[in-house]
Design a protein around this nucleic acid. Sequence first.
DNA 1: TGGGCATATATGCGTGGTCCTATATAGGAC
DNA 2: GTCCTATATAGGACCACGCATATATGCCCA
Lengths: 169, 169
Amino acid sequence: MSLSHAILGLLDLAPMTGYDLKKTFDGSVAHFWAADQAQIYRTLAALVDDGSVDVRVVPQKGRPDRREHHITDDGRRRLTAWLGSPLEPERSREPFLARVFFAGREDPAVARKLLAERRAATEERLTALRSLPDPAGTPAERLRTATLRYGVRQLEAELGWIDETAAAL
Amino acid sequence: MSLSHAILGLLDLAPMTGYDLKKTFDGSVAHFWAADQAQIYRTLAALVDDGSVDVRVVPQKGRPDRREHHITDDGRRRLTAWLGSPLEPERSREPFLARVFFAGREDPAVARKLLAERRAATEERLTALRSLPDPAGTPAERLRTATLRYGVRQLEAELGWIDETAAAL
DNA sequence: TGGGCATATATGCGTGGTCCTATATAGGAC
DNA sequence: GTCCTATATAGGACCACGCATATATGCCCA
């Protein structure tokens, strides 16, 4: 359940409503974490239950009240514990590679189409990543922008592999 | 539900029991797909239900009967349809990058430890990948080994990023 | 007046998936 | 004799998640 930790991390930067969190996930952390709106609200409720977060209702005129979620000391402790805990082994799951692996039973055109489609998608994601601001500031900011550079490197490596593989067909 | 397609793909290469499939997932396709044993049996049952696969029971002495699963013509059609269908957009979920992103609130030692741990894990996976045989044979075999080279490229890119990022701390 | 968009929260349903445990048998190690 | 490993299958509990949908309101634009 890394989503709860990601939420704690974001609430540590600033108190937010579920709605704010959704926008943040879709914006500044989309390159490494996608979150469903319903799941955000559910996880938020669980975090309130276990005391990691508390809610302050801010009335608004003309709009539903903001239920602003603030991280608690307990929440900060859990965040710190997570950041210091050993890395969980990641289990791979890459549908694209699965297709490549099995594409051999089809006409060569299928594999070519696969690679071409992926190339387009990868290029698109690369432009999206590169257009994001990359100012190196405080150490904390540098770590955050490093996650963007990670994406750029991975995508560039992928383009290289696609071209090599397509050429070998 | 890519697992069902991965299973169909493997059964297209050779008929197998659930047990065989588990070994295959842990072995030759582990670099791009991890599968839980219970989930394999459940998915296999679903594939039998929808006619993609049929079972031939092969009695054995001293061991439980082999329930050998064979792909049917319907199954082959579904496999082909999947291989030709448009790529699903992949939603990212990278716990490691999430940690890096939020590590800024901690002592610099935390980020350093994070990168060092990841470096070791990445290096380990690289050696595992490189030790696998890589003979270019038929076009189908070349596509399968291409998925290994994909992993090598990604891991190498990651090592580069880790070193760059660690140096910038 | 009506439509579309932004703000804001929440439930229900289904499903894919992980972990744990149970069952059955044989061979080899200690 | 007991324990471990390999072969082989499967159910139960639980969980995180994705998608669809509902509700409420105010603003702007046509």
